[in-house]
Simulated assay, not measured.
Amino acid sequence: MYKIAVIGDYDSIYGFATLGLDICPVKTRDEIREKLRRLAESGYGIIYITEAAAAEAGDELEMLRGRTLPAVIQIPGVSGNTGAGVEGVKKTVEQAVGSDILFGGVNE
């Protein structure tokens, strides 16, 4: 069974520990990149990352997006939702389906 981790600032992720997820509080860009790399190499199947941390992850996050595992999913942090998580899911669905599912629907 794959493990699940959450990366971000402590205030945004500490609650996930009660669900049995491994929490990885980070503060700097280098910590974020190193933690992503380490988790990906350690058999994690899902890595949740706050949108703020994902914005700092840069190339490390892009490298993981091309892989099947781990699945890296952006979540909002305590500072709010930037929309980056929803945009990432939208792009993934567009690639899989071949069209924008939020625009051009049947009921327009």
Rank of each mutant, 00 (worst) to 15 (best):
R67F: 02
G43V: 10
T82V: 05
E41R: 14
L21T: 05
A53D: 07
G66Y: 00
A52D: 11
L102C: 12
T50W: 00
S42R: 07
M1D: 14
G88A: 08
L61W: 04
G88T: 04
E56H: 08
L102T: 14
Y44P: 15
K90T: 09
A53W: 03
V97N: 05
G20T: 05
G104M: 11
F16T: 03
V86F: 04
N81L: 10
V89K: 00
G105N: 04
A17D: 07
A54Q: 06
G45E: 11
V72G: 06
A17I: 11
V72E: 03
I73H: 09
N107H: 06
T68C: 01
G8C: 03
G83I: 03
E51K: 00
F16D: 08
E94R: 13
N81C: 09
E108G: 12
E60S: 13
D30I: 00
R38F: 05
G105C: 05
I4N: 12
V86A: 13
G88S: 10
R37L: 12
D22G: 04
R29V: 13
P25A: 09
K35Y: 01
E108H: 03
Y10F: 15
G15A: 12
L102S: 14
G66D: 11
I101D: 13
E60P: 04
T50E: 07
R29T: 15
E94P: 06
G85P: 02
V78G: 08
R38K: 13
V6A: 13
Y14M: 13
R33Y: 02
V93D: 11
E94I: 12
V26T: 03
R65Y: 09
G98L: 11
D30V: 01
Y10N: 06
I101Y: 07
T28A: 07
G83N: 05
T28G: 06
G104C: 13
K91H: 09
I13T: 07
Y48P: 10
V97E: 13
F16C: 08
T28L: 04
Y44F: 15
R37V: 05
G58Q: 06
R33Q: 15
V89M: 12
Q95I: 12
Y48H: 13
I46D: 11
T18Q: 05
S42T: 08
Q95C: 07
L21M: 15
E56W: 05
S99R: 13
R33F: 02
P25E: 02
R37T: 14
G77M: 07
T68I: 11
G43I: 09
R38G: 05
A40H: 04
L64F: 07
G58C: 06
G98I: 08
L61Y: 10
K3A: 07
E56G: 02
G45Y: 01
D22R: 05
R29F: 02
E51H: 01
G105I: 10
G8W: 01
G58D: 11
P70S: 06
I73D: 09
I4Q: 11
R38L: 14
C24A: 14
C24V: 14
D100C: 05
A53Q: 02
L19W: 05
G83P: 04
L69P: 00
E41K: 15
